[in-house]
C-alpha cells in the first residue's frame, strides 16, 4: 500500500496563495513609497543607518541656514568697513589739502569741520548694527559700542569688549564672525579715531598737519588689513556653502542606497508575484474542482 497523504490539501493551497499575495503587497508598497525598507524590521541595520543619515542631512540644512545668516552679518560689517576706508581716503585728501601752506586760517577751519563731519560718519559706521545686533562691539552686542568722549585722545569711548565669536558652518568647521571694534578702530598700529581727531585738531591749530595725515594713512592701512578677516570669512562661507550643497547630494545618494527601492527589481518582483498569484489561484481552483470517486458512482 502506498504512503497515505493528507487528504486535505486546502491549507497548503491557501498558504501558497497567501505567500503570493504577500509578495505582491510588499512589491506594491515598495513601488508606492520608493523604499525597500518600510519598517524597521525590513532591515534593522539600514533603519539605524537612516537615523544617522537623516540627522546629518538635517544638520547640513542647519549649517546652510547658518551660512546665510552669518553671510548677512559679515556682509554688513564688511560694507561698513569699506565705507570707513573711503572716509579715511577722503580724510587723507583733506589732510593733503590742509598741509598746503598757502591756505588761509578760515580755509583750514573749513577743512577741520569737514574732518569733524568725517569723524561723525565714522562713529556711525563703528556703531553699525545687523538685525539689532552691534557688529563691532566684540560680544557686547546689545548697546552701541562707541560713544563720543571729548576727554579721550581719540574723541571716543569704547564700551565693547575684545572677544571674538565663531559659528559652526560645517561639521568641525567654524568661521570667525567678528573682529572687535577696538581692534578695528582703536588699533595701536593705526588708530582710526585718534588719527581723525588729531587731523581735525591739527587743521584747527595749523600745526602738525602732515604728521596727523601720516597717522590717518597708517589707520587706513591698518583698517584695510583688519578688513581682510571679513573678506576671508565671506569666502570661507562661500566654499562651505558649495561643500554643504555637495554633501546634501551625497547624503541623499547614501539614503537611497540605504533604504531606496531598486525600482526595476521591484517592478519585476511585482509582475512575478502577480504571475505566481494567478498560478496559485488557478491551481487551487482546478485541484478543488477535481472529481472524486463518488462522482463516478451511479
Amino acid at each position: 500500500m502506498s504512503v497515505r497523504l493528507n487528504p486535505d490539501i486546502t491549507p497548503d493551497l491557501l498558504a501558497s496563495i497567501e505567500q503570493a499575495q504577500q509578495n505582491q503587497q510588499t512589491a506594491i508598497q515598495q513601488m508606492s513609497t520608493g523604499r525597500s525598507v518600510n519598517n524597521l524590521s525590513d532591515n534593522p541595520a539600514a533603519a539605524a543607518g537612516l537615523v544617522g543619515n537623516n540627522a546629518l542631512s538635517s544638520e547640513n540644512d542647519q549649517f546652510l541656514t547658518n551660512v546665510s545668516d552669518v553671510q548677512g552679518k559679515l556682509q554688513t560689517a564688511d560694507s561698513a568697513l569699506s565705507n570707513a576706508t573711503q572716509l579715511l581716503t577722503t580724510a587723507i585728501t583733506v589732510g593733503t589739502q590742509g598741509a598746503n601752506g598757502t591756505l588761509s586760517d578760515s580755509d583750514r577751519q573749513a577743512l577741520a569741520q569737514q574732518v569733524q563731519g568725517l569723524q561723525q560718519q565714522m562713529l556711525g559706521l563703528a556703531n553699525t548694527a545687523y538685525e539689532g545686533v552691534y557688529v563691532f562691539g566684540g560680544t557686547n552686542v546689545s548697546a552701541p559700542p562707541f560713544a563720543q568722549d571729548a576727554s579721550s585722545s581719540s574723541g571716543v569711548q569704547y564700551n565693547g569688549n575684545s572677544h571674538v565669536t565663531s559659528v559652526q558652518i560645517a561639521e568641525g568647521t567654524s568661521v570667525q564672525t567678528n573682529v572687535a571694534g577696538s581692534q578695528l578702530f582703536l588699533n595701536s598700529g593705526g588708530n582710526v579715531f585718534s588719527a581723525l581727531n588729531d587731523l581735525a585738531n591739527a587743521l584747527t591749530s595749523g600745526n602738525g598737519i602732515a604728521a596727523a595725515n601720516t597717522e590717518v594713512q597708517q589707520a587706513f592701512s591698518q583698517l584695510t588689513t583688519q578688513r581682510i578677516t571679513y573678506g576671508n570669512g565671506l569666502s570661507q562661507l562661500q566654499s562651505s556653502q558649495n561643500f554643504l550643497n555637495q554633501e546634501q547630494v551625497n547624503l541623499s545618494t547614501q539614503q537611497n542606497q540605504l533604504v531606496g527601492a531598486n525600482l526595476t527589481a521591484v517592478v519585476a518582483n511585482e509582475s512575478q508575484a502577480q504571475v505566481d498569484l494567478q498560478a496559485a489561484l488557478s491551481a487551487t481552483g482546478q485541484v478543488l474542482n477535481l472529481p472524486n470517486l463518488l462522482t463516478y458512482l451511479k
Partner: peptide, 20 residues
C-alpha cells in the same frame, strides 16, 4: 531623530545670534 536634530539645530541657529 527629527526632534533630537531639531533641538540641536535650534542651538546652532541661536549660535549665529545669541542675543536674538
Amino acid at each position: 531623530q527629527s526632534s533630537l536634530s531639531g533641538f540641536f539645530n535650534s542651538l546652532q541657529q541661536l549660535s549665529t545670534s545669541p542675543s536674538d
